[in-house]
């Protein structure tokens, strides 16, 4: 935090048996953690080992079914492609804008941050409706751009091969502002003396950025990358609704979550849906553990 360092309290208010009565206050949280987190996860693992027929154990048959499902590899390719476009775009865009904003003593810095943050208020479906407006050449405010690119219908703009770029743009527009605040907050945490000292030694603005600022906000950049990888594997709303709006040009099983949704609600193959959920859960868990233990952002708290 940029503010003056707070008094760090290692010692607790009490130790030993005193104060145990207060643990009652923890009960609702632990109960919810169990019924919303741990039990459904365990139940999904259990379901994933059942036979599809609904009776008895199926061993790893559900996992086998998911992995050999002809669309499965495709969904992984799709999210891989989204990441290839989205992550560099997000990293360069967010870190770049945050660095450009930081250390600028213009009165515009506040309003600019607010403008970048604003689309976040329209998160989810609201943002999606806005992008339908932008992408449909019939009424798009950027129609000249779209027709220059040669698109005259929504199906042409949102052709399957364009989806990684489209989703990258959608997600950047919706989420970058929040991340700019995060990186900007990290930059504010750099002690003034360090920057002053570097300037005294004759560091130029670029050297200051490259040698001091970027290395010091590296944990937040790592956090940005890891969290966005986790989100990319979970992509659902955008491909789902864009698929509905374009009527059949985009596969309804474009991402793993959509495939899992199809298993559960169209094919009614619960073990396969559970197995795919478990696989995705493991990926998220691994990323989560890395963020929690390796980036150093949370270590001093525990």
């Amino acid at each position: 935090m940029g503010a003056a360092p707070r008094r760090r309290r290692k010692a607790f208010a009490i130790s030993g048996r005193q104060g145990r009565g207060g643990l009652v206050l923890l009960v609702p949280y632990v109960v919810l953690l169990l019924i919303v987190g741990i039990i459904p996860a365990g139940y999904a693992v259990y379901q994933s080992f059942l036979a599809r027929s609904g009776s008895g154990w199926g061993g790893v048959s559900a996992y086998h079914e998911v992995v050999t499902e002809f669309q499965f590899v495709g969904t992984l390719e799709h999210i891989g492609l989204v990441m290839v476009v989205w992550l560099p775009f997000m990293i360069i865009g967010v870190v770049g804008l945050a660095l450009l904003l930081h250390g600028r003593r213009s009165r515009l810095v506040g309003p600019l941050r607010f403008i970048y943050y604003l689309p976040g208020a329209l998160a989810g479906m609201g943002n999606f409706v806005l992008w339908l407006f932008l992408l449909d050449p019939i009424d798009s405010p950027v129609r000249p751009l779209l027709s220059w690119l040669g698109y005259s219908t929504l199906d042409q703009t949102a052709e399957p091969s364009h989806l990684p770029v489209i989703f990258a743009l959608m997600l950047f527009f919706q989420g970058a502002g929040t991340w700019i605040l995060i990186i900007y907050g990290g930059l504010n945490g750099i002690p003034e003396e360090v920057q002053e000292a570097a300037m005294m030694d004759g560091a130029t603005g670029w050297q200051l950025t490259r040698r001091i600022k970027i290395p010091l906000v590296r944990p937040w950049i790592a956090y940005l990358i890891l969290l966005n990888i986790a989100y990319a594997t979970q992509l659902f709303l955008e491909p789902q609704v864009l698929g509905l709006a374009t009527q059949g040009t985009i596969s309804p099983q474009w991402t793993p979550n959509q495939l899992s949704y199809t298993f559960a609600f169209q094919i009614f193959d619960v073990p396969a849906a559970a197995a795919l959920s478990v696989m995705l859960l493991v990926v998220s868990l691994v990323i989560g553990v890395i963020i929690t233990t390796r980036t150093g952002l949370f270590s001093e708290q525990t």
Binding site: V36, G37, P40, A41, Y43, A44, L227, A230, Y231, T233, Q234, F236, N257, S260, Y261, A264, A273, A274, L276, S277, L280, L281, S284, L285, I287, G288, I291, T292
Partner: peptide
Amino acid sequence: VMPNTVLVIP
């Protein structure tokens, strides 16, 4: 830090 979509199906 885990996406809240991850447990929807479970």
